[in-house]
Amino acid sequence: MALIETVGLKKIYNLGGSVIAALDGITTNIEKGEFVAIMGPSGSGKSTFMNLIGCLDKPTAGRCFLEGMDIGCLNRDELAVIRNKKIGFVFQSFNLLPRTSAIENVELPMLYSGLSPLDRKLRARKALKMMGLEGREEHLPNQLSGGQQQRVAIARALVNDAPLIMADEPTGNLDTKASEEIMELFVKLNEESHITVILVTHEHDIAAFSKRIIRFLDGKIVSDEKRSRP
């Protein structure tokens, strides 16, 4: 069974008369353990696709299965549970809570899965350590560099043992060196922990870390190639 399976996924925006098909019938499969890069020009629907399979948004038409479960049939709270347990998000703009320490940011998903305060602390500490952020636990986001902030965000995505990480241009705000560090972390997670990684990027250097590249154009898939990592 595929981890993600979409069938004719559509997202139509209706903006004051003009109809925009952000996604125009996407049918694809992503297996467990894959490392997928999604590429395509701006406005081609990459983010829209990520939001739909990430249970953050609802499709206009078509279906999307996660571990065989039709997520179109789930209510808000059931979707929240899936986001909490199955998916770790990494955003271009980090999306850490301001004025909240690194460790508390990492604890956030566990707050909603009902772990005890002690367990939360321990696991958050471990996740930060894994991201090479030992000793930075009490730092606020504005006291960290962009690369460090993104690593806090990855720690937050991992802390609930999500089998799937979805990253929408995770290196978009970082310089080359920090970008490579982040990508190496993703590769490590993918290879050592068998975590499925789906990431959106504009840069070929970044896409080069992946094992499969799906290209979007005008809401459709124009190419889908599997490759081996160099």
């Binding site: 953050l56 986001r83 998000f89 999306n95 809570l97 899965s113």
Partner: peptide
Amino acid sequence: TREIGIRMAVGAKVRD
């Protein structure tokens, strides 16, 4: 609003 969005993305339910 953004904070609420972040909380929802990491799994906050309606009642949370």
